[in-house]
Amino acid sequence: MATLEIRDLHVSVDTENGPKEILRGVDLTIAGGQTHAIMGPNGSGKSTLAYSIAGHPKYNVTSGTVTLDGEDVLDMKVDERARAGLFLAMQYPVEVPGVSVSNFLRTAKTAIDGEAPKLRTWVKDVNKALTDLDMDPDFGTRNVNEGFSGGEKKRHEIVQLELLNPKIAILDETDSGLDIDALKIVSTGVNRFAEQGDKGVLLITHYTRILRYIKPDFVHVFVDGKVAEEGGHELADELEANGYERFLKTGAKA
């Protein structure tokens, strides 16, 4: 089973006034078979953590380590990280004009597997993945995310998750902007992925709503660029009842 280990991770971004530190020593271990939820207020660095693990060039890792089964993730290019088994479902999926969804999915699958998928089963797999996420198979002929609604973009991310079937999935606010029906559809897809047994899920969310449909084994409260408190599902229940106020006070002191 795969293990993603994050140790004392510090990340900064360049601003007009010089580098600004956003992650201030993150420690987190996600093992296969586990679902972790990271919850936190706006601006706490949750998305920075997701993009830093995926290797977005905007984020500079100043110290710390990220390893996947002992391999140095930070030393890998973005595409190498994906091929090593990491997947990031993005909060704002990008439009790629002129590139069809089916071409994109086939190209990605070929890159991940190192060989082209078998045509006959692949078409079936794609259609099933789309249908499972309540998307019409016609989406295959549309350009990647172009003209998709917010909900369609998020569902398309989960279609990719299921087809590419990574070791560790990081979901960056996949629930934001979804109505309740879409939220259920997306959650069902994530659960299908997780129920394979050996997969790790890191679910980043601002709201507790999605945790009614995806049950995390561990909940981490993220404040001011690091994990402020860890617990089980009861921590999510507390946040549901009381919000982030208790943690924000702690964060201000730090």
Binding site: V78, F87, A111, L164
Partner: peptide, 23 residues
């Protein structure tokens, strides 16, 4: 666009080709 395609495992050169042929 490049980051999005690479994050799906597509190497940088191939990602560029996809974007330009899409254009």
């Amino acid at each position: 666009q490049l980051f999005y395609l690479q994050a799906r495992g597509i190497p940088e050169d191939e990602a560029r080709r996809l974007v330009v042929s899409g254009f």
